[in-house]
Amino acid sequence: MQATLPQDLTLGPFAVDRDGSLRPREPGLRPAMRFAWRGRCCEAALGPEEVQLSAIAARIPSTAEAGPARPGAFAAIAALPGSLPPGWRARLLPDHRVQLETRAPLSDSPTTVELLAAMVRFALALDPYLERLDSACGPPSGTAKTWPG
């Protein structure tokens, strides 16, 4: 007697078809995978034809932590947008965190392998910017919380 496999597998907010292709588990849902890279919270959100990738790259020291690091952090962040690869964007969030974002195209039926490959390419391309921001803003403190967000 042979076991019957389900039509698709549930993987968090994703439905994985038997051929490995990903889709939202429920219509209208924006499924995302959260991961940590070098102590930073990162996210890969599946869109209709692309994956939206983002990472919290740094945090500007607060005025309570004023000192030599704060002016250097502002200078490094001001220079950041001109040095990013085409299609990348730097955003200063209201809580003084710096987020780097980009998008990567996906096939019509993206697979888990395709999504993971985009995540790895993003993380590796992120490294030089993390190094630069670490030297200006200081390394991230604490442990990255990766789930649920």
Rank of each mutant, 00 (worst) to 15 (best):
T4N: 08
P6V: 06
P6M: 07
Q7G: 09
D8N: 00
P13W: 08
F14W: 07
F14A: 03
V16P: 01
V16L: 14
V16N: 03
D17L: 12
R18H: 11
D19N: 09
D19E: 10
D19A: 11
G20H: 06
R25C: 05
R25L: 15
P27H: 05
P27E: 07
A32L: 11
A45P: 08
A45C: 13
L46V: 07
E49D: 15
A55D: 02
A57R: 12
A58Y: 05
R59W: 00
P61S: 08
P61V: 09
T63N: 10
T63A: 14
G67F: 03
R70W: 08
R70D: 14
R70L: 14
A73L: 12
A76R: 00
A78N: 14
A78G: 13
G87M: 04
G87W: 01
W88L: 03
R89M: 13
R91C: 00
L92Y: 11
L93C: 06
D95P: 00
D95A: 14
R97C: 11
V98E: 02
T102W: 05
R103P: 02
A104W: 06
P105F: 11
L106H: 06
S109V: 03
T112I: 09
T112E: 06
L115F: 01
L115D: 05
L115C: 03
R121S: 11
F122D: 02
A123Y: 04
A125V: 00
L126F: 01
L130W: 00
L133A: 01
L133D: 07
S135W: 00
S141V: 15
